[in-house]
Each structure stands twice: as structure tokens, then as C-alpha cells.
């Protein structure tokens, strides 16, 4: 009975000590002396803590990104040339201080080019690769359309430009510049995430076809006028531009990060680093979250009122009608 009591007591104590702490990676040899100043000894462990607090998360982000990009993106001759030219630019820009900078980073010129400049170019291509591989799914979610949009602040200017465009006497760029438009007249990619234009423009872009030609419509603020022409609703026709445009969407880059860090099994085993990454790069911490939900299908960025307006009509003639009906009193801004 006495033994039993001892057993229960020891087991209880042991239970209290059982791993109820988050993991923290210990550095071997942390008691080794690095330097001594007077009576104070600085150990490798103390230096490790300073390094971790200052650059711990940044180092992991950089090293992990290199691991992913080197596995996914091939280094092309174009990248090598670009890195070489960036290096030359830095050398001429910073002159004598450039070697000291490299030295302070613990790098030679060659290492800077191969371990910093080229990986950075590879990283730029990673999101694009992700979009390319998930093109249909992402296009279904963000509905990229290639369109030309000219913005005017006076209806007379918009009318004059429309007339020149319809009779074919001017191209979009000339019609824009000659009629005080703030636009360049070059085709662009408009997704459901594009915030440059109000919902009336989005409505026309989603519902017009290339055959409709130029459509004139007033802005929802009552002080802007738009000429819109849809060039293509088929993303495959303008894939390269669509990829570039989609890569600037935050949710797409987040999903790309999630995808690749999941694919390469990124896993953190140190609580301090985990918390630091949670603050700075939460997308990387795939170990703690479920895979992202499938992308929703595109929801037209248009208010019911706008979608009911004649601006959404497929008839070019009818599409001019809202210009007249869009009195200030009809504007939501009122």
C-alpha cells in the first residue's frame, strides 16, 4: 500500500511536468563563449536570441522562398542577364560603398547575384506560374475581361469622342487625348476585383459583347462619363495580360503562397518563430489552417439599380440613354 501511494504521488508529479509547453528549438553549444568584454561573457545562445529577435522571421521567409522557387521556377538566361544588369546598376549607383555593403551582408558579388537577385526574379514568376496552372478556376472567380475604357469629366467631350470612334476617324488613344480624357486609350484587363471603375462600368463590361462597339454611360457619381468597349470575354485570348493582372490580386497571391508552402510541406517547430511569422507572413503558416475554400464564381460587381438601368442593355443605341437619364437626383451619391 505504501508503494502504491509512492507510485501515485510520483505519477502525479510527473504528469505536471509532461509536455504542456510549445516547442522551442534549442541551439547546441549555446553556452559557448563568443566574446568577453570586461567581466561579461557573451555566449552563442545570447547571440542566437538577438539574431532571432532581429532577423529570425525574415531569414526563414527568404530561405523558404528560395527553396520553393528553386524547385518550381527554372533560372532562365533572361533572368541571369537581368540580374547581371541589376548588379551593374548597383555597382555604379553605390560606387565604393557597394563592396562594404556586400561584406556587411556576408556576401560576395557572385553570391549576391545568385542568392539574392536571381531568387527575387524567380519569386516574381511564382504567382504567375500558380495562376497559369489554375487559370480556368481563377478566371471563373475573377472574370477577367479585356476592355478599353475612356473616362471623361464632361459629357460634351465623351459625345465628341464617341462620334469620332463610331465613324472610325480616330483610334481610342487619339480620341481620348483630343477630348480631355484622363485615360490612355489602351486596352486593359478588368476583373471583378478592379476598383478603378464604378459598378455601372462593371455592369456594361460584364454584359456587353465585342460586337456592341463603344458604349457611353454616366458614372454613378454623376460627374464622370465613360466610353466602354469590350474587346474579349475569353481570357485564353489575352492570357499573358490576364495573368499579370490577376497576380496583383491579394487573395490570389495568398492562395498561391498557401498552395506552394503546402506542396513543399513548410512546417515550423519553434514557437517564437511561429509567432513572428504569424505576425509578418501568416499565409506561409499552412500547418495551422485548413486548405483555402474553393474560389467562388465571379459575382458581378454591380448594384441592382445599376443592373436594371438601360446601361446594361446590349443595344448600343439604348446604351446611350442613361447618359440623359442619369440626372444628379438619380445618382446614389445624392
Amino acid at each position: 500500500m505504501k508503494n502504491m501511494k509512492r507510485f501515485l504521488l510520483s505519477a502525479s508529479c510527473a504528469l505536471l511536468l509532461v509536455g504542456c509547453k510549445d516547442a522551442s528549438a534549442k541551439l547546441p553549444g549555446s553556452n559557448e563563449t563568443v566574446m568577453t568584454v570586461g567581466n561579461m561573457t557573451i555566449t552563442k545562445g545570447e547571440l542566437y536570441n538577438v539574431l532571432k529577435a532581429n532577423s529570425g522571421a525574415g531569414q526563414v521567409v527568404s530561405d523558404a522562398e528560395k527553396a520553393v522557387t528553386s524547385a518550381e521556377i527554372e533560372v532562365t538566361d533572361e533572368m541571369k542577364e537581368s540580374a547581371e544588369s541589376t548588379l551593374s546598376m548597383y555597382k555604379s549607383m553605390y560606387g565604393d560603398s557597394f563592396p562594404s555593403y556586400l561584406e556587411s551582408m556576408g556576401m560576395t558579388e557572385e553570391e549576391f547575384k545568385n542568392d539574392s537577385l536571381i531568387p527575387s526574379l524567380q519569386a516574381d514568376k511564382l504567382v504567375e506560374k500558380y495562376i497559369d496552372e489554375h487559370f480556368d478556376e481563377i478566371c471563373a472567380a475573377y472574370d477577367p475581361v479585356q476592355a478599353t475604357v475612356l473616362t471623361f469629366t464632361a459629357k460634351e467631350d465623351a459625345d465628341a469622342a464617341l462620334s469620332a470612334l463610331r465613324d472610325g476617324s480616330k483610334d481610342a488613344a487619339t480620341a481620348a487625348s483630343e477630348n480631355n480624357s484622363t485615360s490612355t486609350g489602351t486596352p486593359e484587363i478588368v476583373t471583378t476585383n478592379t476598383t478603378t471603375y464604378d459598378s455601372s462600368v462593371h455592369s456594361v463590361i460584364r454584359t456587353s459583347s465585342p460586337d456592341d462597339g463603344w458604349v457611353l454611360l454616366p458614372g454613378m457619381d454623376g460627374s464622370s462619363f465613360y466610353l466602354v468597349k469590350v474587346n474579349s470575354h475569353t481570357p485564353a485570348d489575352f492570357k499573358e495580360d490576364a495573368i499579370k493582372s490577376l497576380s496583383s490580386i491579394g487573395a490570389v497571391t495568398s492562395n498561391s503562397t498557401d498552395y506552394y508552402y503546402r506542396k513543399y510541406g513548410f512546417h515550423v517547430y519553434d514557437i517564437e518563430l511561429y509567432n513572428a511569422l504569424k505576425e509578418s507572413n501568416p499565409d506561409m503558416l499552412v500547418q495551422s489552417k485548413a486548405a483555402p475554400t474553393p474560389l467562388p464564381s465571379a459575382v458581378p460587381a454591380v448594384s441592382p439599380a445599376a443592373s436594371e438601368s438601360p446601361a446594361a442593355s446590349e443595344s448600343p443605341a439604348a446604351s446611350e440613354a442613361p447618359a440623359a437619364s442619369a440626372t444628379p437626383s438619380a445618382s446614389p451619391a445624392q
Partner: peptide, 20 residues
């Protein structure tokens, strides 16, 4: 102790220290 792992590589505390 491993600090993190990626693409099948375990980055230990020593490797992490050297890199930093």
C-alpha cells in the same frame, strides 16, 4: 532540434544560426 522544414529538408537550430 529542428526549427522548420521545407521540401523534405529539416533546418536545424545550428543551420538556422549559421544562416542568420
Amino acid at each position: 532540434d529542428v526549427v522548420y522544414s521545407i521540401n523534405g529538408t529539416d533546418v536545424t537550430a545550428s543551420m538556422y544560426y549559421d544562416s542568420m
